[in-house]
Design a protein around this nucleic acid. Structure first.
Lengths: 333, 333
DNA sequence: TTGTACGCGTTATCAC
DNA sequence: GTGATAACGCGTACAA
């Protein structure tokens, strides 16, 4: 594990460190043909590899960015992260993924740690609980892009999906297929996408003159969803259509359906808000609202790298439409 | 983005840099009570945060490790990575995940890049195509742990699943349920787990006096699997049971089943070698061979961190048994 | 074209 | 208890 340094190469080639440095930075104009060859040979002989840590210290950039996902167990997070990494790979940037696990304390720790590690910028799925910290970073001019969620009234680029409109479309699809008893199931309303999806749901029912039924609206922590479903489907007139707020909720719904021997669309129509892995090949194939995760990830990466390169970026909301993919679980009443 | 350095803190507190350094390393014996307080205040006032890059340069360690997964699209990879990260988080180590995408060239590039970034060690799902490079790292004493696959005859710890035994058990289960026409479908036999799973399959049939039927053995690139399945199920006597070699193959199988309107276990029994997300709540629930991904990841992390701390680790194979989880897709003939 | 000297922010080693 | 000073490995003026 003896590391060979630039000095070793210089000695081997019989030149000075700076000449080796010039060589590494491909500034060949500043050296003779034979010097160049000698350096090249010395590097090969010693198996020299530049030390990026030292380089980073000097250049004040690490060529690394951080991604702080709220919860890595959501398929959407991994798809977005993957897209970001892919884009960064092409730009010779390294992306570090950290999982905040929906825990604001953990999020804070990661943000501070990544900044201490001098990563060049951050893409964050904010828990929305660390407003002061976000604010501080932005005021300090640190490159940041928010993903998926809105948080506070901060002056930075935010990539979001059109949650209201998409939920609206899904419910409209239900209505057009004859449903009136329509339910939405989601987790606690702590983050903006969940609130917005509920909003779209309500808007659509209202505009179609369907009375909101509080029993059909579930917004609970994952561990309470089973009992709420149990209760809802014990009603005299249970829902005939369900919009699952995300993939985790869908999992709970599947559990429940298995227990009750329910099938979609036989027992109720179902649309899931999220990209889920086997949606198209499952039987029955699952109707989904698909977010353009790859596109959103790529855009976030672009905006972040622009900021890092001191290019101007508009600190606005970049909203992406989702696609309602009707498959087999959502049918006519 | 003006970074405040130790020198700023020292000046503010009216002490020298070294004293501040002592403070940061909690060596309070070497300073007076009031000095300590002054430094503390200066740090708070300036919002000072230590620069890890500079620290790493000096300490020759970055508190980062790299994970090079062969293909991030396999559920097993993400589960293992997640377990590694979790363990590392507790040890204040940062894990960087890189996706080699089954491409030896990309794997090589990532290994070199991470070493240049001075990460303290590497956990690799080897493509098994860069033997010289692996060999070089190990000879140089660089901490490395191999995961999932065997490659070359190298002197390092390897975490593997008992692929032969598990495939054997799955096939035995088929036989005990009356099946004789049993198929195995897997990708190209380029890496050890696939070869071993096929081996276990063959061993079991042999020991039970069932003649191997080459038409029932598919080992092809993903893009050719559909046509091979098509051919196999057009046989006069098609298989009544199928062992899917991994989750990607399972996806192909689902596609095929959907096209043909096949259902398991109605049309054939099915066991999937791999952890798949909705296995237990799907209808029908999918029988699987479940690898202890979390355990394996944790063990890999432990072994790597031990090496990094210069503790001795046995450079042997650590083999983990898998669990055959019989659910609904595998039934009696 | 090449070499020298210094800076980057931190830590370790000795003096004081 | 505290403070100079020298590493660490690389980049970069600037001098030669």
């Amino acid at each position: 594990m003896e590391r060979v340094t630039m000095a070793d190469v210089a000695k081997e080639a019989g030149v000075s460190k700076s000449t080796v440095s010039q060589f590494l930075n491909k500034r060949f104009e500043y050296m003779g043909e034979d010097t160049r060859k000698r350096i090249q040979e010395a590097i090969a002989l010693l198996g020299y590899q530049p030390n990026y840590v030292a380089r980073s210290l000097k250049q004040k950039r690490t060529s690394m960015i951080g991604i702080i996902v709220a919860n890595i167990m959501h398929r959407f997070s991994t798809e977005v992260s993957h897209a970001i990494e892919e884009y960064c790979y092409g730009e010779d940037i390294q992306a570090i993924v950290c999982n905040a696990d929906d825990d604001p304390a953990k999020e804070k720790k990661y943000i501070e740690m990544l900044m201490a590690k001098q990563v060049d910028g951050l893409i964050i799925f904010p828990t929305a609980q660390n407003i002061e910290l976000y604010d501080h970073m932005i005021k300090a001019g640190y490159p940041v892009v928010f993903m998926d969620r809105k948080a506070g009234d901060l002056n930075l680029p935010r990539i979001v999906a059109d949650n209201i409109g998409s939920a609206y479309e899904a419910v409209k699809h239900f209505i057009e297929n004859g449903h009136e008893r329509i339910s939405i199931v989601t987790q606690e309303l702590t983050i903006s996408p969940r609130r917005e999806r509920l909003q779209g749901y309500k808007d659509c029912l209202n505009e179609h003159g369907i009375v909101l039924h509080e029993d059909f609206i579930i917004h609970e922590p994952i561990e309470h969803i089973q009992e709420k479903l149990e209760k809802m489907f014990s009603l005299n007139a249970p829902p005939t259509a369900v919009l699952a707020g995300n993939d985790r909720v869908f999992l709970e719904l599947l559990k429940f359906m298995k227990k009750k021997q329910f099938m979609a669309p036989r027992d109720f129509s179902l649309i899931v808000f999220d990209n889920i892995p086997f949606a198209d090949v499952a039987t029955p194939a699952v109707s989904t609202i698909s977010q353009p995760a790859a596109e959103m990830g790529k855009k976030a990466a672009e905006l972040l790298l622009k900021q890092i390169q001191k290019e101007a970026v508009e600190p606005k909301e970049y909203e992406y439409p989702c696609e309602l993919v009707v498959r087999e679980t959502s049918g006519k009443l």
